[in-house]
Each structure stands twice: as structure tokens, then as C-alpha cells.
Amino acid sequence: MASVLEVPSDTTFVSAGPMVPRPFVVKRFRKETDDTFTLELEPKEGRSRFVFGPGQFNMVYVYGVGEVPISISGSPSTPGLIHTTRAVGTVTKAMAKLKKGDIVGIRGPYGTTWPVKEARSHDVVIVAGGIGLPPLRGAIYEILSNRKDYGKVVLLYGVRTPADILFKDELEQWRARFDMEVFITVDRAVSEWRGNVGVVTTLISKAGFDPQNTIAMIVGPEVMMRFTALEFIKRSVKPDSIYLSMERNMKCGIGLCGHCQFGPMFVCKDGPVFRYTQIKDLLVKWEI
């Protein structure tokens, strides 16, 4: 987290109004799966370091099309800005057509971060469902760059089909490490698939963590997060050691537009990363 708290010399700051995007240049566009892609961005002007904490998001503006909140999927301690997302709406579909040299607008970083500092000396179990892996990647990088400070580190990753697995090479590298365990499971297998089949919650029993001393970080569809949190609690993980990242409609990202309200919370500024105990009652109230 040092990189987040201290301000390195290669940092630029935004001085304009909070609703004014700053131009960033697409340095690289990479297709990840059929409908997901990664953008590597650099500020058009100023220095390349983008200071953020793992779990935070940016409002990404595509010229004339619109702006959407997208979590940052890169490492907090390396230059540049990385976003990985799925083309599902008007704006993300336009993003999927960007190419090297194109400009996008960036506002951020916004929101709360993963408790990577509090997690020190704990076992860390990271659970990602589908497109939930990118928001967790920054936390994984932070933990791995201070690996000796943590107990067991386990990544449990569930996706729809084998073709939907993101960051395959990186997952292989992580899996090859002796100090990290990676379990992947798919909901629907094809006949060539020799890996795990079943929902991500079934992996929790395989993770072998010390429940009394574990921090869990979860991102995925809300239903998946609810069941995952319950599975951890069933295994005696403390409810306030479970963290999850929420998604809501956002128009401003800074607590002014009202769209992301979740009970009394503004997901954009009180979240997106919440302690499970903060929101567990809201999670089971429909249409809150």
C-alpha cells in the first residue's frame, strides 16, 4: 500500500472540476475473451503514474458516447492505467472498438479499497466470479509484492465456461508459485475440459485456510457474493473479515448524482468495497 499513500514523483494530479475527464491515450488494446478486453492507458499530458488503491474504479468516458464506472485491473505500483471489462452496454461496446492511439477520458480514482493492509499476517482468500477478477487483480498484485507479510494466499475463480477465463497466462504464473494457490472452476464444461466443474462456492472447502485468521475478498454477481459470504461464515470465518465489492448504476462517481444509493450507502464513495457486516442486511432486501 506504500505506493498508494505516498505520492511518487512521477504523479500527475487533476485540478479541473470533478466532472471533467482527463484525456488518456490507448497504449494497447488486448482482447481477453469473446466479450472482454483490456485497455492499457497513459495520460495524454503529464506523467504516467496513476495513483490508486486496489479495488478503486474510474469513470471512463468514450468521446460522445458516454461514461461508465470501471474498476482498475492493473497494479497500483506500476505506471500506466489498466482497465479490463466486458462489452455489455453502449459505452463498453464503444470501448471494445478502441485502438492504439485513441483517446478516452478518465475521472478517478474513486471509492474504497481492498483491505490489503489489514490483511497482513492473515490468510487471504480471494474469490472471483466471472468478470469479478479484474477488480481483485490490484489486490493480488499488492499482496504478492509484499508476499512475506501474509499467511496463505488462495485465489478461487469461477467462470461460466472454460472460454471465459480471463488472464490465463497470469493465472498459470500464479498457479506455478509455491506461495499461492489458484483454483478455477467452470459452471458449464465442454468435453475437453479437465478442470473443475461446479459453482465457485464448492472451492471454498478446498482452500484450506485458518478460518479464525482469514480475510476474504469477494467480487462477482450479487447472488454469488451472498452465497460465497455465507459459505465462509459456515466455515467460521468472521463476518467482519469478509469484504465484497458492489455494483450499482453511477453517473458521477463522487456521491452527487444519487444513482448508486444502496440503502444509506453511496456505492461510489462508501464502496464499492464494503465489509460484509456493513451491508449484509441490505443484501437480502430486494430492490433496495
Binding site: 466471472g130 461460466r160 459452471d187 459453482v199 454469488m224
Partner: peptide, 14 residues
Amino acid sequence: LESTRLQLLDLYGV
């Protein structure tokens, strides 16, 4: 049964 139900929901699909 619970995991089968979750699987049936196809949560990660668009």
C-alpha cells in the same frame, strides 16, 4: 442441490 441451483442460475451470463 444448492450448488446445482446456483449453477442453473447461470449468473455469469450476459
